[in-house]
Design a protein around this nucleic acid. Structure first.
Length: 646
RNA sequence: GCGCCCAUAGCUCAGUUGGAUAGAGCGUCUGCCUCCGGAGCAGAAGGUCGCAGGUUCGAAUCCUGUUGGGCGUACCA
């Protein structure tokens, strides 16, 4: 239901209630207007009489009688009113209303029901924010599908939405990641493995090491043999490799090359090429093997070994992982767009390291310390008194050894968001951050944000099933089902639809075999099949020379299936607003299946293009309307509607 | 031990912020194409909404207790 239609109905209700003389004024917020579960109860049901009954101590059914007697809806809006059950007032759209709305859908297309812009109201939506120490896993994939869809839905509902990825590139995990790459790098030179105890064991770590090794040997060869340095110009982002390589100490040369590499992969195009060419989804190491024999391992190691000490493996590794992640997102149809990040960074990608560089972390701590009792020192550490704001216990901001905790950094990050002036901030976190929610909300209240300013959604875990059994996953252990694999096996549309079929807060089973082998059993095909039929109808109509975009006479459409289809079409704006209000995009996949079902029933029961031209035109019109709503709805969940025959 | 999430048909899950006779897909069974795609439609079977209390006109939904599963519970991130 469109917002202005809802307003008209609520106003009508209010007037009728006041006209009963039972109350002087009325808070309508407790009065619900909703779609009854059972269609025989009409299109809208309201509990108004029951709410009133609670106020004036009278029988709901009697009050319902009084209200209904005073209801005065125009006949082009409501066609039927009845009292049912304990005191529901059921309303039914008039045929005229359905005809007019259907026509409006055809004319407005994707604009139908679009929420009014909430002037200046901005929401920031942060999602995935996975550590840049490995490929994106399935939970990240789910969070990406949910976040991206939610952004589209909120935007549709009238908010100004910015999406953002927070890059955790500042902590001890990065150190560990770098050490892991270094260990693999040295292994290539014949050193015994020195992989840290809890280091990263994934194949991709070998891949990065291998790539760096190959790169280094090529550069050495080029420099030593006085060959043209041109091929490296691209790699170093236009910088002359000679400048990078010649002169300076080994440490300086290593740092310069690392800079060049990072710069390069951070440019989008470079990122794609590198990520796709140098990493296979699994076990990418083999693909990276260079042409052996051009430079011997001993030579590389002799020159490169010092790099084992000086080269910033962690930094380069992060740059490559981010490149990979961005490429994965691009394939998945997810683009971050917040433009509040530093100029040197990509839109929508906010680096934790920047909080240290700009001393934001220190500033945040200093600021907190000015807030009276909020911060105190105990056992040599600094604590934040979050327990007064709904958290279980107080939390450490600065360890006794002087290092800041992740918590402090995250407060600094969210303070940054606060200063950017968002009216509301939504974070989608993985299940492992569950325990972080309470303290973070508490902290934001302490620094002065409104109680509901920060909303956290936990994207629950995904159990990937292969051969009917759950796959164990661990990023550090290297066992991962990546977003890339899910996309490769299930396809973007199926995967995205799948991730949005469950409530975000519920665990999700993702059966890879089923997604791959039995695509016709997948609900997304049910919805897309509606499209297939629409295209077929169009094709048939063209052959009969009956294809037209002009509105037919909708009053010819009175069959049960036709009316039902129109009623479902009209529901659309309300469904999107409900999804926006509850932050639950899965409602839309449910709705789309509903709508597809109504369309299939209609199709099954009635020939669209038949002998009666007038009827054919009228039916073509609701087909147009259905197509428009399906397209818009699928767009909001991030699934491509088929553009032609499947 | 404490906290959070979950428990609904054989399986996977919806259930419109407390509404009416609890729904869908898959699976099982029965029908439906000389006609726009049968990847569909119609129908059947399948339920003590984990269990026990409570709140009220009314509970799958809220409260308390309880059982089972998951996650969290760091001066990790």
């Amino acid at each position: 239901m469109r917002p202005d239609v809802e307003r008209r109905i609520r106003e009508g209700l209010r007037a009728a209630i006041l006209a009963t003389g039972r109350v002087e004024h009325l808070d309508l917020s407790a009065v619900h207007l909703e779609k009854p579960r059972d269609p025989v109860h009409g299109d809208l049901a309201t509990n108004a009489a029951m709410v009133l009954a609670a106020l004036v101590k009278a029988s709901p059914r009697m009050l319902a009688e009084e209200i209904v007697a005073r209801l005065d809806f125009p006949p082009d809006l409501i066609g039927g009113v009845e009292i049912a059950g304990p005191g529901f007032i059921n309303l039914r759209w008039s045929d005229e209303f359905l005809f007019r709305e259907t026509e409006r859908i055809v004319r407005a297309g994707s604009e139908y029901g679009l929420g009014e812009k909430k002037a200046g109201k901005r929401i920031q939506l942060e999602f995935v924010s996975a550590n840049p120490t490995g490929p994106l896993n399935v939970v990240s994939a789910r969070a990406a599908a949910v976040g991206d869809s939610l952004a589209r839905i909120l935007e549709w509902a009238g908010w100004e939405v910015e999406t953002e990825f927070y890059v955790n590139d500042g902590g001890t995990q990065i150190q560990l990641f770098g050490d892991s790459i270094r260990a693999r790098f040295l292994e290539l030179g014949g050193f015994p493995s020195s992989l840290p105890e809890d280091g990263y064991r994934g194949e991709w770590v070998r891949g990065i090491a291998r790539m760096l090794w190959d790169l280094l040997s090529e550069i050495l060869r080029t420099a030593r043999e006085d060959l043209p340095l041109e091929p490296w110009r691209d790699l170093t982002g236009g910088r002359d490799i000679g400048d990078t390589w010649e002169g300076g100490t080994t440490r300086e040369r290593a740092a310069a090359l690392a800079d060049a590499l990072c710069d390069h992969v951070e440019q989008r195009n470079g990122a794609r090429g590198l990520a796709e060419g140098w990493f296979a989804p699994r076990g990418g190491g083999d693909a990276l093997a260079g042409d052996p024999g051009r430079v011997s391992d001993e030579e590389v190691l002799a020159l490169g070994e010092p790099w084992g000490e000086t080269f910033p493996f962690g930094r380069v590794g992060v740059a490559f992982m981010l490149a990979w992640q961005r490429a994965s997102f691009e394939r998945f149809g997810v683009i971050y767009n917040a433009d509040a990040c530093a100029e040197s960074e990509l839109r929508g990608w906010f680096h934790e390291s920047r909080l240290y560089e700009t001393r934001a972390v220190e500033d945040t701590l200093a600021n907190l310390k000015t807030l009276g009792d909020a911060v105190y020192e105990k056992d040599g550490a600094w604590w934040l008194a979050t327990s007064g704001h709904g958290d279980d216990e107080d939390r450490v901001l600065v360890r006794s050894d002087g290092r800041p905790t992740y918590f402090l950094t995250d407060i600094a990050y969210h303070e940054n968001k606060l200063r950017r002036g968002y009216d509301s901030v939504i974070d989608i976190w993985g299940p492992d951050h569950h325990g972080h929610v309470g303290r973070m909300k508490a902290a934001m209240q302490i620094v002065g944000a409104g109680r509901d300013w920060l909303e956290v959604i936990i994207a629950q875990q995904v159990n990937v099933l292969r051969d009917g059994k759950p796959v164990r996953m661990s990023k550090r252990g290297g066992e991962i089902i990546s977003l890339d694999e899910v996309v490769a096996e299930a396809g973007v549309d199926t995967a995205r639809f799948f991730f949005l079929m469950r409530k975000t807060s519920s665990h999700l089973d993702f059966d890879l075999d089923l997604a791959r082998k039995a695509s016709e059993e997948n609900p997304v095909y049910y919805v897309q099949y509606a499209f297939a039929r629409i295209w077929s109808i169009y094709e048939f109509a063209r052959r009969r020379n009956l294809m037209t975009e002009e509105m037919g006479d909708l009053s010819l459409l009175t069959a049960r299936e036709e009316v039902r289809l129109m009623r479902d079409l009209v529901r659309f704006p309300g469904e999107v607003r409900a999804a926006a209000g509850t932050l639950e995009p899965h409602r839309l996949t449910v709705y789309l299946q509903d709508l597809a079902h109504s369309f299939h029933k209609f199709y099954q029961g009635h020939r669209v293009v038949g002998d009666d031209d007038g009827l054919s035109r009228a039916r073509l019109s609701i087909v147009h309307a259905t197509r428009a709503i399906l397209e818009t709805g699928m767009g909001l969940v991030g699934v491509q509607p088929p553009k032609e025959r499947m």
